[in-house]
Computed example of a mutant assay.
Amino acid sequence: MNYWIGVASKDHVTLGVAGGFCQLCHGKSAPLNKMQAGDWLIYYAPKQSLKTKEPCQEFIALGQILPGETYAFEMAPGFIPNRKNVDFLKDIQPVSLQAVADFPLWQEYRSRLRFGHFQIPEELFDFIISGMKTGV
């Protein structure tokens, strides 16, 4: 089992959670293909919307990757991103980036937020989700 952080605007994450899928790095398949059934994904939202600069800076969604392959989905004419199905947990609380900032292990991973998708160790995963008040 592996643990991942995906980075997307809050409005995009909300669509994915409602639809039971993840979509990363502007719809590229490579990051999705790295994740296997049973892996965990935490979504971090740097801003509220792709179209604005209003900050969010929170870890806002948590889900487990479901069995099945990455698949293409036409969202709009000419825009066919790739997706992977995810079982997102309900009733979680967002965790601010500030709440994680003092965790020593986070310092090693913070700069990776600009890449859109990266793997984290279980210890960091556990720390972040402890603030989400989940039973994982």
Rank of each mutant, 00 (worst) to 15 (best):
L15D: 10
R110T: 14
K51A: 13
E108D: 11
K84N: 09
I42Y: 08
A8C: 13
C56T: 02
I60S: 04
K28P: 02
A61W: 06
P31N: 09
L41W: 00
I5G: 01
G38W: 06
A76C: 10
E108H: 11
P94Q: 04
G131L: 00
R110K: 15
Q98M: 08
G19Q: 07
L62N: 01
Y109M: 04
Q98T: 07
K28L: 11
T134C: 12
A30I: 04
A45Q: 04
S9H: 11
C25E: 06
K47N: 15
L66T: 13
V13Q: 13
Q48A: 13
F118W: 10
A99E: 15
I65G: 05
A45K: 02
G63R: 06
N85G: 00
S29D: 13
D91C: 10
M35D: 03
R112Y: 15
D39C: 03
F21G: 01
P77T: 13
Q98V: 09
E123W: 09
C25H: 07
V136K: 12
Q119E: 12
G6P: 00
E54A: 14
K34D: 07
P104S: 05
Q36T: 06
P94L: 09
K84G: 02
G63L: 05
Q23D: 01
K133C: 09
K84H: 13
G38R: 08
Q57K: 14
E74P: 01
D126N: 12
V95R: 07
K28R: 15
T134P: 00
V86M: 15
L24I: 01
